[in-house]
Nucleic acid binder design. Sequence first.
DNA 1: CCTCACATGTAATGAGTTACATGATTGG
DNA 2: CCAATCATGTAACTCATTACATGTGAGG
Lengths: 181, 181
Amino acid sequence: MNVRTLCLGILAFDEASGYEIKKAVEDGMFSHFIEASYGSIYPALTHMLADGLVTVREQLQEGKPLKKVYSITEAGRKALKNSLHELPQQDKFKSEFLFQALFRDQVEMKHLEAVFDGQMAFLYDELATIEECRQSAEPGSGHAFVNGYGRAVVSAAIQYMEESRSSLGLPEKTISSDAAE
Amino acid sequence: MNVRTLCLGILAFDEASGYEIKKAVEDGMFSHFIEASYGSIYPALTHMLADGLVTVREQLQEGKPLKKVYSITEAGRKALKNSLHELPQQDKFKSEFLFQALFRDQVEMKHLEAVFDGQMAFLYDELATIEECRQSAEPGSGHAFVNGYGRAVVSAAIQYMEESRSSLGLPEKTISSDAAE
DNA sequence: CCTCACATGTAATGAGTTACATGATTGG
DNA sequence: CCAATCATGTAACTCATTACATGTGAGG
């Protein structure tokens, strides 16, 4: 999938600016698909505007810079549907964290612990984001399915990580002020 | 992570040819980290050879073409360790399957079913691959941890998918003996 | 005052994929 | 004979990231 399709998908739900799209991809409702930087989002929007897949409207705001709000067109919806049908019908579980875990004997214990804790922090953060999104997702919607899937997978990862901590030779984590589940 | 680091990691376990690396990344013990094509693997090996991170040995085989077997050097191990320490300490759950699921209302039911079944097939296949790898992974090793993680996550995904089938409006899957079209 | 959040964009660069190009051998 | 598997490699191309470039307004 490319950034164009991602943006089109987001705009199919609601109009948005490039900045808002970035935020949604970074953290929000659309953070579980692919990554995208400003350097790919803005050109994608410009390109789609030229192709008539989106329209733009400049919005003046009080106390904030001018915002260019993009809306999807009928042609855009058609293009999205088309792209959707062309996407591969499988995806892969790939993890760079696992790659690092693979070499646990070859790195310093301190580093392994940092990596493990980093992944743990990520997983808990991810779960929190998902729970947050679950609030605003209506039951039976695509969003609800996505959040349910994410929650199932992330929870399983957390559980396995917690169980594995000692077997990797890592010290027990004394809970300082963390949010327990 | 780049393909160079991936290859180096694989070679840290055992010597291999470019072709063998590709197979291991496609299907085998090293299929859960990043993807890599011949077009990236061969140049990576050539590059690392020039840098002295690996050595090469040409191996004649009966009934098969000549094979170039690469082995990691001490400098290679050092470089690997270095790269490992520089990798990001988090990774992301990204899924293009979920993106498609998001638009379940906007695609034809037939397509949604194909995508769903495709993902299901992938998950079961993945689980089978992992179980297979578990046989050859010695307990307590990095491989064992990786396989355990993969198994936990993939199992959770399968369970959620099975539970969600009907709620997505998909027909119950009759155990496939009459799957011929 | 200075930094952060908001907001938009471009250009150089880099990393990888796809398609191309070749060729041996085995099995149906 | 033809397809598949084994095996190595290159070149054009795509796509996205990073760094650059600019500017406003709010709040500590």
